[in-house]
């Protein structure tokens, strides 16, 4: 990150074919997100927030313009290079947790480290650290069906954080949780953001999430409508 930016998009456009025409999901997005930000893409359904998250997560390619993630231009990445970027540097948190039901909490969190070929001792330490961050050290041997929704999402956070990625992308992470659990999850992520310096980018329209964001990027019809940065008590951005 030569210029301290984790994400930078320039005139980013994404079009999808619809019948004989096309639907413009993103229409000239210019965005810069720096290291350690706790930002969210906010907007109604169809505003383009998940599409933007897909391109930033190297899961999709832009139609035109550029998206540079961790100094790597997404549009030039091969499938293998994109997978490598996700594996090494990006953590994902999904709305539906997507834990592997037959594996224990420990094994679910361990999985990204297996892909990165860490040795057994390192994996054990890193998984235990990640589980302690989310307060689930006592649940290592439990399996997802034995956990509550909130606990499952905390496991998903631990899985996203265990490799200490530079960037975590979270798509509606509290959509399936009640208010108390949502608060708990968001506090956990906020703490991790503060303590580890990990950049978090959310896609959400949930007020609970929005209230925690330090930067709110409002999307309307594929364009950035507003970009608000929360000021701290000293009036600093």
């Amino acid at each position: 990150m030569e210029n301290g930016l984790v994400i930078e998009t320039k005139k980013l456009v994404k079009k999808f074919p619809v019948g004989k025409g096309e639907f413009i999901a993103l229409n000239g997005i210019d965005l810069k997100i720096g290291k350690g930000e706790f930002a969210g893409l906010i907007g109604p359904s169809g505003s383009g927030k998940t599409t933007l998250l897909n391109i930033i997560g190297s899961l999709d390619m832009p139609s035109s313009g550029e998206a540079v993630v961790l100094d790597r231009p997404v549009s030039t990445l091969s499938s293998r290079e994109a997978a490598s970027l996700r594996k090494e540097s990006i953590g994902f948190i999904f709305q539906s947790y997507n834990l592997l039901a037959v594996h224990t909490v420990f094994e679910n969190v361990e999985f990204p480290l297996l892909l990165l070929n860490y040795n057994s001792a390192d994996r054990r330490k890193m998984v235990n650290d990640a589980l302690s961050w989310v307060g689930l050290s006592d649940k290592t041997r439990s399996k997802p069906p034995q956990l509550s929704g909130g606990e499952c999402q905390r496991v998903a956070i631990a899985r996203a954080m265990v490799k200490k990625p530079s960037l975590v992308l979270a798509d509606e992470p509290t959509a399936n949780l009640d208010a108390a659990n949502s608060h708990n999850i968001l506090t956990t992520m906020e703490t991790l953001n503060r303590e580890l310096g990990t950049t978090f980018l959310f896609a959400t329209h949930d007020e609970k999430v929005i209230s925690y964001l330090k930067r709110k990027i409002f999307l309307v019809d594929g364009r950035i409508d507003r970009d608000e940065v929360k000021q701290n008590q000293n009036g600093e951005k």
């Binding site: 997978a83 996700r86 090494e88």
Partner: peptide, 8 residues
């Protein structure tokens, strides 16, 4: 999930 997490 495995693809999203970067498995080739």
């Amino acid at each position: 999930l495995r693809l999203a997490m970067g498995e080739e």
